[in-house]
Amino acid sequence: MKSSIKYMTSILLVLFSFSCFAEIVVIVHPSNASSLDAKSIQRMFLGKSKSYSDGKKVVAINQKKKSDITKDFAKKVLKKSASQLKAYWSKLIFTGKGTPPKEVSTDAEVIELVATNPNIIGYINASSVTDKVKVAGKF
């Protein structure tokens, strides 16, 4: 009994520390020279900001809703809980005022899309970064 509690606690601790310390990076195409700060990234992923500082169109890409990175990104960058974010988008979807970013499943897919399209902005775990993309912000 005692050992199972210990076991559970250590699992919880590992999970907890993972979600707290995993660093998220926001990535763009290497040719994208726009200045991006936390506020502008937030607005791009909420559909409020539609172009980069150089005038190019923004296409934001989300990861799967249920994934830890998406929840983490919502909390750290969008400053919303998963349900607040869902409420925010349902308000726009059902009034014809906006569509949430499309979703992909893995860091590798985000990298692939960002590397091939200068309009795309995405987020991945810091540990997945490759030289095919440019890091625009760390959270």
Binding site: A87, S90, K91, F94, K97
Partner: peptide, 16 residues
Amino acid sequence: RLPLFYYSDFFDVGYA
């Protein structure tokens, strides 16, 4: 929907 009020547009979407 006639957008009279702040909530008119998404009146039916209780989740919002």
